[in-house]
Design a protein around this nucleic acid. Structure first.
Lengths: 268, 268
DNA sequence: CGGGGTCGTTCCGGCTTCCGGAACGCGGGC
DNA sequence: GCCCGCGTTCCGGAAGCCGGAACGACCCCG
Protein backbone atom coordinates (compact mmCIF):
# COMPACT_ATOMS: atom_id res chain seq x y z
CA UNK A 1 0.00 0.00 0.00
CA UNK A 2 1.42 3.32 -0.97
CA UNK A 3 0.92 6.78 0.35
CA UNK A 4 -0.44 8.19 -2.85
CA UNK A 5 -0.18 7.25 -6.51
CA UNK A 6 2.76 8.75 -8.28
CA UNK A 7 1.48 11.29 -10.71
CA UNK A 8 -2.13 12.36 -10.83
CA UNK A 9 -2.00 12.32 -14.60
CA UNK A 10 -3.40 15.46 -16.10
CA UNK A 11 -6.34 14.57 -18.24
CA UNK A 12 -5.34 15.10 -21.78
CA UNK A 13 -8.64 14.56 -23.43
CA UNK A 14 -6.54 12.33 -25.60
CA UNK A 15 -9.07 10.74 -27.81
CA UNK A 16 -6.45 11.11 -30.51
CA UNK A 17 -3.52 9.02 -31.61
CA UNK A 18 -3.52 6.68 -28.66
CA UNK A 19 -3.14 2.95 -28.85
CA UNK A 20 -6.36 1.04 -28.28
CA UNK A 21 -8.51 3.63 -29.93
CA UNK A 22 -11.74 2.04 -28.87
CA UNK A 23 -10.69 1.90 -25.24
CA UNK A 24 -9.73 5.55 -25.30
CA UNK A 25 -13.08 6.34 -26.83
CA UNK A 26 -14.81 4.34 -24.13
CA UNK A 27 -13.05 6.36 -21.46
CA UNK A 28 -14.05 9.55 -23.23
CA UNK A 29 -17.62 8.31 -23.20
CA UNK A 30 -17.39 7.81 -19.46
CA UNK A 31 -16.08 11.33 -19.11
CA UNK A 32 -19.22 12.67 -20.71
CA UNK A 33 -21.11 11.57 -17.64
CA UNK A 34 -19.01 13.73 -15.36
CA UNK A 35 -20.97 16.80 -16.32
CA UNK A 36 -24.32 15.24 -17.07
CA UNK A 37 -26.21 12.66 -15.08
CA UNK A 38 -28.01 11.01 -17.95
CA UNK A 39 -27.11 10.86 -21.59
CA UNK A 40 -28.30 9.07 -24.70
CA UNK A 41 -26.39 7.88 -27.71
CA UNK A 42 -27.07 10.94 -29.83
CA UNK A 43 -25.73 13.44 -27.32
CA UNK A 44 -22.66 11.37 -26.59
CA UNK A 45 -21.96 11.05 -30.31
CA UNK A 46 -22.35 14.77 -30.84
CA UNK A 47 -20.14 15.65 -27.90
CA UNK A 48 -17.31 13.37 -28.97
CA UNK A 49 -17.71 13.78 -32.70
CA UNK A 50 -18.21 10.10 -33.37
CA UNK A 51 -20.89 8.25 -35.23
CA UNK A 52 -24.12 7.63 -33.45
CA UNK A 53 -23.79 3.92 -34.00
CA UNK A 54 -20.35 3.93 -32.42
CA UNK A 55 -21.63 5.76 -29.40
CA UNK A 56 -24.44 3.28 -29.09
CA UNK A 57 -22.07 0.34 -29.09
CA UNK A 58 -19.79 2.04 -26.59
CA UNK A 59 -22.66 2.67 -24.24
CA UNK A 60 -23.85 -0.89 -24.55
CA UNK A 61 -20.39 -2.31 -23.93
CA UNK A 62 -19.81 -0.13 -20.89
CA UNK A 63 -23.20 -1.04 -19.57
CA UNK A 64 -22.43 -4.73 -20.05
CA UNK A 65 -19.40 -4.21 -17.86
CA UNK A 66 -21.40 -2.40 -15.22
CA UNK A 67 -19.58 0.89 -15.60
CA UNK A 68 -22.78 2.38 -16.93
CA UNK A 69 -26.34 1.45 -16.24
CA UNK A 70 -29.25 1.71 -18.54
CA UNK A 71 -32.02 3.98 -17.44
CA UNK A 72 -35.40 3.74 -19.08
CA UNK A 73 -35.80 4.70 -22.73
CA UNK A 74 -32.23 4.14 -23.82
CA UNK A 75 -30.55 6.66 -21.64
CA UNK A 76 -27.54 5.75 -19.52
CA UNK A 77 -25.96 6.83 -16.27
CA UNK A 78 -22.89 6.00 -14.23
CA UNK A 79 -23.08 2.55 -12.72
CA UNK A 80 -22.70 1.42 -9.17
CA UNK A 81 -19.73 -0.69 -10.10
CA UNK A 82 -17.83 2.56 -10.44
CA UNK A 83 -18.68 3.26 -6.84
CA UNK A 84 -17.17 -0.04 -5.85
CA UNK A 85 -14.01 0.52 -7.82
CA UNK A 86 -13.73 4.01 -6.43
CA UNK A 87 -14.04 2.79 -2.88
CA UNK A 88 -11.40 0.18 -3.52
CA UNK A 89 -9.06 2.74 -5.02
CA UNK A 90 -9.25 5.01 -2.01
CA UNK A 91 -9.33 2.22 0.56
CA UNK A 92 -5.94 1.16 -0.66
CA UNK A 93 -4.33 4.49 0.00
CA UNK A 94 -2.12 4.44 3.03
CA UNK A 95 -2.76 8.13 3.39
CA UNK A 96 -6.44 7.69 3.91
CA UNK A 97 -6.01 4.76 6.21
CA UNK A 98 -3.76 6.50 8.69
CA UNK A 99 -5.61 9.80 8.36
CA UNK A 100 -9.09 8.49 9.10
CA UNK A 101 -8.90 8.04 12.87
CA UNK A 102 -7.09 11.34 13.30
CA UNK A 103 -9.69 13.11 11.18
CA UNK A 104 -12.38 11.58 13.34
CA UNK A 105 -10.78 12.94 16.47
CA UNK A 106 -10.38 16.33 14.87
CA UNK A 107 -14.03 16.42 14.04
CA UNK A 108 -14.88 15.62 17.64
CA UNK A 109 -12.59 18.37 18.84
CA UNK A 110 -13.67 21.17 16.55
CA UNK A 111 -17.26 20.10 15.95
CA UNK A 112 -17.15 21.23 12.36
CA UNK A 113 -16.88 19.50 9.00
CA UNK A 114 -13.33 18.27 8.36
CA UNK A 115 -11.84 17.27 5.01
CA UNK A 116 -8.87 15.49 3.55
CA UNK A 117 -7.82 16.61 0.08
CA UNK A 118 -5.16 16.05 -2.55
CA UNK A 119 -4.33 17.81 -5.77
CA UNK A 120 -5.34 16.32 -9.09
CA UNK A 121 -4.51 18.58 -11.98
CA UNK A 122 -5.35 22.09 -10.86
CA UNK A 123 -8.20 20.92 -8.68
CA UNK A 124 -8.49 19.69 -5.16
CA UNK A 125 -10.03 16.27 -4.83
CA UNK A 126 -11.57 15.51 -1.47
CA UNK A 127 -10.76 11.98 -0.36
CA UNK A 128 -12.76 12.23 2.80
CA UNK A 129 -15.25 14.52 4.40
CA UNK A 130 -16.56 14.01 7.90
CA UNK A 131 -19.54 16.12 8.80
CA UNK A 132 -20.73 16.96 12.25
CA UNK A 133 -24.34 16.24 12.81
CA UNK A 134 -25.29 19.27 14.85
CA UNK A 135 -23.14 21.87 13.15
CA UNK A 136 -25.79 24.44 12.41
CA UNK A 137 -26.30 24.96 8.72
CA UNK A 138 -25.60 21.92 6.66
CA UNK A 139 -22.64 22.21 4.38
CA UNK A 140 -23.11 21.35 0.76
CA UNK A 141 -21.94 17.80 0.32
CA UNK A 142 -22.44 17.34 -3.38
CA UNK A 143 -19.01 18.18 -4.67
CA UNK A 144 -15.81 16.25 -4.50
CA UNK A 145 -13.60 18.50 -6.52
CA UNK A 146 -12.89 22.22 -6.43
CA UNK A 147 -10.62 24.57 -8.29
CA UNK A 148 -7.49 24.70 -6.17
CA UNK A 149 -7.06 28.48 -6.19
CA UNK A 150 -10.16 29.18 -4.13
CA UNK A 151 -9.62 26.49 -1.54
CA UNK A 152 -7.54 26.50 1.60
CA UNK A 153 -6.34 22.99 0.85
CA UNK A 154 -5.34 24.04 -2.63
CA UNK A 155 -3.44 26.95 -1.20
CA UNK A 156 -1.53 24.73 1.18
CA UNK A 157 -0.65 22.32 -1.60
CA UNK A 158 0.37 25.04 -4.04
CA UNK A 159 2.50 26.70 -1.37
CA UNK A 160 4.84 23.74 -1.36
CA UNK A 161 4.71 22.86 -5.04
CA UNK A 162 5.95 25.42 -7.58
CA UNK A 163 4.74 23.42 -10.55
CA UNK A 164 1.23 23.28 -9.12
CA UNK A 165 1.42 27.02 -8.55
CA UNK A 166 2.32 27.55 -12.19
CA UNK A 167 -0.41 25.24 -13.42
CA UNK A 168 -3.03 27.06 -11.38
CA UNK A 169 -1.91 30.45 -12.64
CA UNK A 170 -1.88 29.23 -16.22
CA UNK A 171 -5.39 27.98 -15.91
CA UNK A 172 -6.46 31.32 -14.48
CA UNK A 173 -8.03 32.36 -11.19
CA UNK A 174 -11.71 32.09 -11.83
CA UNK A 175 -13.94 34.38 -9.80
CA UNK A 176 -16.55 32.57 -7.78
CA UNK A 177 -17.59 35.19 -5.25
CA UNK A 178 -16.79 38.89 -4.78
CA UNK A 179 -14.11 37.75 -2.34
CA UNK A 180 -12.26 35.33 -4.56
CA UNK A 181 -8.64 36.35 -4.96
CA UNK A 182 -8.27 36.66 -8.72
CA UNK A 183 -5.24 38.92 -8.92
CA UNK A 184 -2.18 36.71 -9.52
CA UNK A 185 0.07 38.91 -7.41
CA UNK A 186 -2.26 38.91 -4.46
CA UNK A 187 -2.78 35.20 -4.86
CA UNK A 188 0.95 34.49 -4.80
CA UNK A 189 1.08 36.63 -1.68
CA UNK A 190 -1.36 34.29 0.02
CA UNK A 191 1.04 31.44 -0.73
CA UNK A 192 3.91 33.34 0.86
CA UNK A 193 1.79 33.91 3.91
CA UNK A 194 0.81 30.27 3.96
CA UNK A 195 4.44 29.21 3.97
CA UNK A 196 5.27 31.65 6.73
CA UNK A 197 2.51 30.73 9.09
CA UNK A 198 2.26 27.04 8.25
CA UNK A 199 -1.43 27.02 7.42
CA UNK A 200 -3.82 28.58 4.93
CA UNK A 201 -7.21 30.18 5.19
CA UNK A 202 -9.89 30.80 2.65
CA UNK A 203 -12.55 33.36 3.50
CA UNK A 204 -15.75 33.40 1.47
CA UNK A 205 -13.81 32.75 -1.71
CA UNK A 206 -15.59 29.71 -3.00
CA UNK A 207 -19.01 29.98 -1.40
CA UNK A 208 -19.93 33.21 0.23
CA UNK A 209 -20.51 32.64 3.90
CA UNK A 210 -18.26 29.61 4.09
CA UNK A 211 -14.60 29.59 5.04
CA UNK A 212 -11.92 27.09 5.82
CA UNK A 213 -8.53 26.55 7.40
CA UNK A 214 -6.03 23.99 6.11
CA UNK A 215 -2.66 22.57 7.10
CA UNK A 216 -0.28 20.41 5.08
CA UNK A 217 0.51 16.73 5.38
CA UNK A 218 4.16 16.40 4.48
CA UNK A 219 6.22 13.64 3.05
CA UNK A 220 9.75 13.04 1.88
CA UNK A 221 13.11 13.37 3.57
CA UNK A 222 13.54 16.43 5.76
CA UNK A 223 14.92 19.29 3.72
CA UNK A 224 12.96 18.14 0.72
CA UNK A 225 9.53 17.88 2.25
CA UNK A 226 6.49 18.39 0.12
CA UNK A 227 2.78 18.45 0.84
CA UNK A 228 1.05 15.40 -0.58
CA UNK A 229 -2.28 16.24 0.98
CA UNK A 230 -3.91 18.59 3.42
CA UNK A 231 -6.46 18.63 6.22
CA UNK A 232 -9.04 21.34 6.49
CA UNK A 233 -11.86 22.52 8.69
CA UNK A 234 -14.75 24.17 6.93
CA UNK A 235 -17.79 25.94 8.28
CA UNK A 236 -19.62 29.23 8.24
CA UNK A 237 -17.23 32.15 8.17
CA UNK A 238 -18.28 33.47 11.55
CA UNK A 239 -17.73 30.15 13.25
CA UNK A 240 -14.44 29.32 11.55
CA UNK A 241 -12.66 32.67 11.32
CA UNK A 242 -14.21 34.27 14.38
CA UNK A 243 -13.06 33.95 17.97
CA UNK A 244 -12.48 30.22 17.61
CA UNK A 245 -9.97 30.68 14.84
CA UNK A 246 -6.84 30.21 16.98
CA UNK A 247 -8.21 27.00 18.43
CA UNK A 248 -9.21 25.68 15.02
CA UNK A 249 -5.83 26.56 13.54
CA UNK A 250 -4.11 24.70 16.30
CA UNK A 251 -6.42 21.71 15.90
CA UNK A 252 -5.93 21.49 12.15
CA UNK A 253 -2.18 21.89 12.36
CA UNK A 254 -1.89 19.30 15.08
CA UNK A 255 -3.99 16.83 13.12
CA UNK A 256 -1.92 17.38 9.99
CA UNK A 257 1.29 16.89 11.91
CA UNK A 258 0.00 13.72 13.51
CA UNK A 259 -0.93 12.35 10.11
CA UNK A 260 2.50 13.31 8.81
CA UNK A 261 4.33 11.35 11.49
CA UNK A 262 1.88 8.46 11.26
CA UNK A 263 2.66 8.27 7.55
CA UNK A 264 6.38 8.22 8.17
CA UNK A 265 6.02 5.54 10.77
CA UNK A 266 3.75 3.32 8.68
CA UNK A 267 5.10 4.19 5.25
CA UNK A 268 7.84 2.49 3.42
CA UNK B 1 -32.67 11.72 -10.59
CA UNK B 2 -33.94 8.25 -9.98
CA UNK B 3 -34.31 6.17 -6.90
CA UNK B 4 -32.02 3.43 -8.03
CA UNK B 5 -30.80 2.20 -11.38
CA UNK B 6 -33.04 -0.33 -13.00
CA UNK B 7 -31.26 -3.62 -12.96
CA UNK B 8 -28.03 -4.18 -11.07
CA UNK B 9 -26.75 -6.25 -13.96
CA UNK B 10 -25.29 -9.51 -12.83
CA UNK B 11 -21.70 -9.62 -13.85
CA UNK B 12 -21.42 -12.13 -16.57
CA UNK B 13 -17.72 -12.25 -16.87
CA UNK B 14 -18.58 -11.84 -20.52
CA UNK B 15 -15.25 -11.49 -22.08
CA UNK B 16 -16.74 -13.59 -24.84
CA UNK B 17 -18.74 -12.77 -27.93
CA UNK B 18 -19.56 -9.22 -27.00
CA UNK B 19 -19.41 -6.31 -29.35
CA UNK B 20 -16.45 -4.05 -28.78
CA UNK B 21 -14.16 -6.83 -27.77
CA UNK B 22 -11.38 -4.54 -26.68
CA UNK B 23 -13.67 -2.54 -24.44
CA UNK B 24 -14.94 -5.69 -22.82
CA UNK B 25 -11.39 -6.80 -22.29
CA UNK B 26 -10.55 -3.46 -20.76
CA UNK B 27 -13.38 -3.84 -18.29
CA UNK B 28 -12.17 -7.33 -17.48
CA UNK B 29 -8.74 -5.88 -16.83
CA UNK B 30 -10.27 -3.42 -14.39
CA UNK B 31 -12.01 -6.27 -12.67
CA UNK B 32 -8.69 -7.89 -11.98
CA UNK B 33 -7.95 -5.08 -9.59
CA UNK B 34 -10.95 -5.84 -7.47
CA UNK B 35 -9.14 -8.66 -5.75
CA UNK B 36 -5.59 -7.40 -5.96
CA UNK B 37 -4.30 -3.94 -5.20
CA UNK B 38 -1.38 -3.95 -7.59
CA UNK B 39 -0.88 -5.94 -10.74
CA UNK B 40 1.57 -6.06 -13.62
CA UNK B 41 1.04 -6.99 -17.21
CA UNK B 42 2.10 -10.61 -16.83
CA UNK B 43 -0.35 -11.43 -14.07
CA UNK B 44 -3.22 -9.68 -15.81
CA UNK B 45 -2.46 -11.55 -19.01
CA UNK B 46 -2.34 -14.87 -17.19
CA UNK B 47 -5.57 -14.21 -15.33
CA UNK B 48 -7.50 -13.26 -18.45
CA UNK B 49 -5.82 -15.64 -20.84
CA UNK B 50 -4.68 -12.94 -23.22
CA UNK B 51 -1.31 -12.12 -24.63
CA UNK B 52 1.09 -10.23 -22.45
CA UNK B 53 1.39 -7.50 -25.05
CA UNK B 54 -2.34 -7.06 -25.14
CA UNK B 55 -2.50 -6.75 -21.40
CA UNK B 56 0.27 -4.20 -21.49
CA UNK B 57 -1.58 -2.05 -24.00
CA UNK B 58 -4.79 -2.33 -22.04
CA UNK B 59 -3.07 -1.21 -18.89
CA UNK B 60 -1.44 1.69 -20.65
CA UNK B 61 -4.69 2.80 -22.25
CA UNK B 62 -6.61 2.62 -18.99
CA UNK B 63 -3.85 4.52 -17.25
CA UNK B 64 -3.95 7.19 -19.94
CA UNK B 65 -7.61 7.64 -19.14
CA UNK B 66 -6.93 7.84 -15.42
CA UNK B 67 -8.85 4.72 -14.55
CA UNK B 68 -5.59 3.11 -13.54
CA UNK B 69 -2.44 4.69 -12.22
CA UNK B 70 1.04 3.52 -12.74
CA UNK B 71 2.90 2.59 -9.63
CA UNK B 72 6.64 2.29 -9.71
CA UNK B 73 8.25 -0.46 -11.74
CA UNK B 74 5.45 -1.04 -14.21
CA UNK B 75 2.79 -2.10 -11.82
CA UNK B 76 -0.62 -0.55 -11.86
CA UNK B 77 -3.40 0.20 -9.41
CA UNK B 78 -6.90 1.63 -9.48
CA UNK B 79 -6.88 5.34 -10.19
CA UNK B 80 -8.40 8.17 -8.27
CA UNK B 81 -10.54 9.06 -11.22
CA UNK B 82 -12.56 5.98 -10.40
CA UNK B 83 -13.18 7.46 -6.99
CA UNK B 84 -14.54 10.59 -8.64
CA UNK B 85 -16.80 8.67 -10.96
CA UNK B 86 -17.98 6.51 -8.12
CA UNK B 87 -18.87 9.49 -5.99
CA UNK B 88 -20.75 11.00 -8.90
CA UNK B 89 -22.66 7.79 -9.47
CA UNK B 90 -23.85 7.59 -5.90
CA UNK B 91 -24.40 11.31 -5.48
CA UNK B 92 -26.95 11.12 -8.23
CA UNK B 93 -29.06 8.52 -6.50
CA UNK B 94 -32.20 9.97 -5.05
CA UNK B 95 -32.17 7.16 -2.53
CA UNK B 96 -28.91 8.25 -1.02
CA UNK B 97 -29.83 11.90 -1.05
CA UNK B 98 -33.00 11.53 0.93
CA UNK B 99 -31.56 8.83 3.17
CA UNK B 100 -28.48 10.72 4.30
CA UNK B 101 -29.98 13.12 6.83
CA UNK B 102 -32.18 10.43 8.27
CA UNK B 103 -29.22 8.09 8.62
CA UNK B 104 -27.34 10.85 10.39
CA UNK B 105 -30.13 11.25 12.89
CA UNK B 106 -30.32 7.51 13.39
CA UNK B 107 -26.64 7.42 14.17
CA UNK B 108 -27.10 10.13 16.76
CA UNK B 109 -29.97 8.25 18.30
CA UNK B 110 -28.46 4.80 18.52
CA UNK B 111 -24.80 5.79 18.81
CA UNK B 112 -23.72 2.87 16.70
CA UNK B 113 -22.53 2.45 13.13
CA UNK B 114 -25.42 2.71 10.67
CA UNK B 115 -25.44 1.52 7.07
CA UNK B 116 -27.43 1.86 3.88
CA UNK B 117 -27.24 -1.09 1.49
CA UNK B 118 -28.65 -2.37 -1.76
CA UNK B 119 -28.43 -5.70 -3.54
CA UNK B 120 -26.09 -6.16 -6.45
CA UNK B 121 -26.03 -9.70 -7.70
CA UNK B 122 -26.08 -11.91 -4.61
CA UNK B 123 -24.13 -9.41 -2.57
CA UNK B 124 -25.03 -6.43 -0.49
CA UNK B 125 -23.34 -3.23 -1.56
CA UNK B 126 -23.08 -0.59 1.13
CA UNK B 127 -23.84 2.84 -0.28
CA UNK B 128 -23.20 4.60 2.97
CA UNK B 129 -21.75 3.87 6.35
CA UNK B 130 -21.78 6.36 9.19
CA UNK B 131 -19.61 5.45 12.11
CA UNK B 132 -19.89 6.76 15.60
CA UNK B 133 -16.68 8.12 16.96
CA UNK B 134 -16.87 6.83 20.49
CA UNK B 135 -18.53 3.49 19.85
CA UNK B 136 -16.09 1.29 21.69
CA UNK B 137 -14.35 -1.13 19.40
CA UNK B 138 -13.85 0.18 15.94
CA UNK B 139 -15.77 -1.64 13.28
CA UNK B 140 -13.93 -2.86 10.23
CA UNK B 141 -14.46 -0.29 7.54
CA UNK B 142 -12.56 -1.87 4.71
CA UNK B 143 -15.33 -3.67 2.92
CA UNK B 144 -18.15 -2.36 0.83
CA UNK B 145 -19.69 -5.59 -0.28
CA UNK B 146 -20.79 -8.71 1.56
CA UNK B 147 -22.46 -11.95 0.62
CA UNK B 148 -26.15 -11.27 1.12
CA UNK B 149 -26.97 -14.46 2.99
CA UNK B 150 -24.95 -13.54 6.07
CA UNK B 151 -26.10 -9.96 6.34
CA UNK B 152 -29.20 -8.51 7.94
CA UNK B 153 -29.61 -6.13 5.03
CA UNK B 154 -29.36 -9.03 2.61
CA UNK B 155 -31.99 -10.90 4.57
CA UNK B 156 -34.37 -7.98 4.43
CA UNK B 157 -33.86 -7.59 0.70
CA UNK B 158 -34.21 -11.30 -0.02
CA UNK B 159 -37.35 -11.48 2.10
CA UNK B 160 -39.19 -9.28 -0.38
CA UNK B 161 -37.59 -10.55 -3.58
CA UNK B 162 -38.08 -14.19 -4.56
CA UNK B 163 -35.65 -14.02 -7.43
CA UNK B 164 -32.92 -12.72 -5.12
CA UNK B 165 -33.73 -15.54 -2.73
CA UNK B 166 -33.28 -18.05 -5.50
CA UNK B 167 -30.04 -16.50 -6.67
CA UNK B 168 -28.59 -16.59 -3.17
CA UNK B 169 -29.54 -20.22 -2.69
CA UNK B 170 -28.10 -21.16 -6.04
CA UNK B 171 -24.84 -19.55 -5.18
CA UNK B 172 -24.76 -21.39 -1.90
CA UNK B 173 -24.67 -20.30 1.72
CA UNK B 174 -21.00 -20.00 2.46
CA UNK B 175 -19.96 -20.52 6.06
CA UNK B 176 -18.10 -17.59 7.56
CA UNK B 177 -18.38 -18.27 11.26
CA UNK B 178 -19.70 -21.17 13.34
CA UNK B 179 -22.95 -19.22 13.58
CA UNK B 180 -23.56 -18.64 9.90
CA UNK B 181 -26.88 -20.12 8.80
CA UNK B 182 -25.85 -22.47 6.02
CA UNK B 183 -28.83 -24.82 5.97
CA UNK B 184 -31.18 -23.67 3.17
CA UNK B 185 -34.27 -24.63 5.12
CA UNK B 186 -33.22 -22.72 8.20
CA UNK B 187 -32.18 -19.79 6.08
CA UNK B 188 -35.54 -19.63 4.36
CA UNK B 189 -37.07 -19.72 7.80
CA UNK B 190 -35.20 -16.56 8.73
CA UNK B 191 -36.80 -14.90 5.71
CA UNK B 192 -40.25 -15.93 6.86
CA UNK B 193 -39.50 -14.51 10.27
CA UNK B 194 -38.20 -11.33 8.68
CA UNK B 195 -41.41 -10.88 6.74
CA UNK B 196 -43.49 -11.49 9.86
CA UNK B 197 -41.71 -9.11 12.15
CA UNK B 198 -40.76 -6.48 9.59
CA UNK B 199 -37.05 -6.48 10.34
CA UNK B 200 -34.10 -8.86 10.22
CA UNK B 201 -31.26 -9.64 12.53
CA UNK B 202 -27.91 -11.22 11.96
CA UNK B 203 -26.07 -12.58 14.97
CA UNK B 204 -22.35 -13.34 14.65
CA UNK B 205 -22.90 -14.76 11.19
CA UNK B 206 -20.42 -12.72 9.24
CA UNK B 207 -17.91 -11.69 11.85
CA UNK B 208 -18.03 -13.38 15.17
CA UNK B 209 -18.79 -10.82 17.84
CA UNK B 210 -20.60 -8.48 15.49
CA UNK B 211 -24.31 -8.38 14.83
CA UNK B 212 -26.78 -6.17 13.06
CA UNK B 213 -30.43 -5.26 12.69
CA UNK B 214 -31.96 -4.13 9.41
CA UNK B 215 -35.26 -2.80 8.12
CA UNK B 216 -36.46 -2.39 4.54
CA UNK B 217 -36.89 0.74 2.45
CA UNK B 218 -39.87 0.09 0.23
CA UNK B 219 -40.93 1.35 -3.13
CA UNK B 220 -43.66 0.82 -5.65
CA UNK B 221 -47.41 1.07 -5.48
CA UNK B 222 -49.00 -0.33 -2.35
CA UNK B 223 -49.86 -3.96 -2.83
CA UNK B 224 -46.77 -4.43 -4.95
CA UNK B 225 -44.17 -2.98 -2.66
CA UNK B 226 -40.64 -4.22 -2.82
CA UNK B 227 -37.50 -3.44 -0.84
CA UNK B 228 -35.02 -1.47 -2.94
CA UNK B 229 -32.63 -0.93 -0.09
CA UNK B 230 -32.31 -1.37 3.65
CA UNK B 231 -31.01 0.43 6.70
CA UNK B 232 -29.03 -1.38 9.36
CA UNK B 233 -27.38 -0.82 12.69
CA UNK B 234 -24.25 -2.81 13.35
CA UNK B 235 -22.16 -3.20 16.46
CA UNK B 236 -20.82 -5.72 18.89
CA UNK B 237 -23.34 -8.47 19.56
CA UNK B 238 -23.76 -7.60 23.22
CA UNK B 239 -24.53 -3.98 22.47
CA UNK B 240 -26.84 -4.61 19.52
CA UNK B 241 -28.78 -7.71 20.51
CA UNK B 242 -28.66 -7.19 24.27
CA UNK B 243 -31.02 -5.08 26.37
CA UNK B 244 -30.99 -2.26 23.84
CA UNK B 245 -32.34 -4.47 21.08
CA UNK B 246 -35.96 -3.26 21.26
CA UNK B 247 -34.87 0.36 21.11
CA UNK B 248 -32.54 -0.30 18.19
CA UNK B 249 -35.19 -2.24 16.31
CA UNK B 250 -37.59 0.64 16.73
CA UNK B 251 -34.96 3.15 15.65
CA UNK B 252 -34.01 1.24 12.53
CA UNK B 253 -37.58 0.59 11.53
CA UNK B 254 -38.56 4.19 12.03
CA UNK B 255 -35.61 5.41 9.98
CA UNK B 256 -36.43 3.00 7.17
CA UNK B 257 -40.05 4.09 7.16
CA UNK B 258 -39.09 7.73 7.10
CA UNK B 259 -36.81 7.12 4.14
CA UNK B 260 -39.59 5.21 2.41
CA UNK B 261 -42.04 8.09 2.67
CA UNK B 262 -39.37 10.65 1.84
CA UNK B 263 -38.69 8.70 -1.34
CA UNK B 264 -42.36 8.63 -2.28
CA UNK B 265 -42.67 12.32 -1.68
CA UNK B 266 -39.56 13.28 -3.60
CA UNK B 267 -39.59 10.54 -6.21
CA UNK B 268 -41.33 10.50 -9.48
C1' DC C 1 30.30 -8.46 -9.10
C1' DG C 2 28.22 -10.80 -12.86
C1' DG C 3 24.79 -13.93 -14.85
C1' DG C 4 20.23 -15.84 -15.29
C1' DG C 5 15.52 -15.26 -14.69
C1' DT C 6 11.50 -12.36 -14.68
C1' DC C 7 8.98 -8.59 -15.96
C1' DG C 8 7.35 -4.52 -18.68
C1' DT C 9 7.53 -2.69 -23.11
C1' DT C 10 8.01 -2.45 -28.25
C1' DC C 11 7.74 -4.01 -32.99
C1' DC C 12 5.44 -6.05 -36.89
C1' DG C 13 2.43 -8.74 -40.05
C1' DG C 14 -2.01 -11.02 -40.70
C1' DC C 15 -6.50 -10.70 -39.95
C1' DT C 16 -10.04 -10.01 -36.69
C1' DT C 17 -13.09 -6.51 -35.44
C1' DC C 18 -14.41 -2.00 -35.42
C1' DC C 19 -16.19 2.40 -37.68
C1' DG C 20 -19.54 5.10 -40.18
C1' DG C 21 -23.52 5.69 -43.08
C1' DA C 22 -28.14 4.36 -43.87
C1' DA C 23 -32.18 1.99 -42.74
C1' DC C 24 -35.54 0.32 -39.09
C1' DG C 25 -38.85 0.74 -35.21
C1' DC C 26 -40.59 3.23 -31.69
C1' DG C 27 -42.30 6.79 -28.73
C1' DG C 28 -43.64 11.25 -27.69
C1' DG C 29 -45.38 15.85 -29.02
C1' DC C 30 -47.14 19.54 -31.72
C1' DG D 1 -52.41 10.65 -36.83
C1' DC D 2 -48.44 12.53 -38.59
C1' DC D 3 -43.89 13.85 -38.07
C1' DC D 4 -39.74 14.39 -35.83
C1' DG D 5 -36.08 12.61 -32.93
C1' DC D 6 -34.21 9.01 -30.58
C1' DG D 7 -31.96 4.36 -29.76
C1' DT D 8 -30.76 0.39 -32.16
C1' DT D 9 -29.35 -2.74 -36.04
C1' DC D 10 -27.17 -4.06 -40.40
C1' DC D 11 -23.47 -4.11 -43.66
C1' DG D 12 -19.15 -3.43 -46.32
C1' DG D 13 -14.53 -1.62 -46.32
C1' DA D 14 -10.47 -0.93 -43.95
C1' DA D 15 -8.47 0.53 -39.87
C1' DG D 16 -6.68 -0.97 -35.68
C1' DC D 17 -5.97 -4.75 -32.87
C1' DC D 18 -4.02 -9.34 -31.39
C1' DG D 19 -0.31 -12.40 -30.52
C1' DG D 20 4.40 -14.01 -30.92
C1' DA D 21 9.06 -12.78 -30.49
C1' DA D 22 12.68 -9.72 -29.51
C1' DC D 23 14.57 -5.97 -26.48
C1' DG D 24 16.10 -3.84 -22.22
C1' DA D 25 15.76 -3.17 -17.40
C1' DC D 26 15.59 -4.81 -12.93
C1' DC D 27 16.31 -8.05 -9.15
C1' DC D 28 17.77 -11.97 -6.88
C1' DC D 29 21.18 -15.06 -6.05
C1' DG D 30 25.27 -17.13 -6.37
Amino acid sequence: MTVLPFSPPVSDDALEDAPLRSVSTAVAVLDCFASEAELGATKVAARLGIAKSTACRMLAALAAGGLLEKAGSGRYRLGLRLFEYGQLAVDRLLLREVAMPILGELRETVRETVQLGVAVGTDVLYLERLETAGAGLRFRTDYHRNPAHSSSIGRVLAASDPSLTMAILERGLERRTPFTVVDPRRWRQTLVQTREQGYATCRDEYDQGWSSIAAPILTGASGRRRAVAAVSVVGSTSRVLGPRKPALVQGVRRAAERITVALERAGS
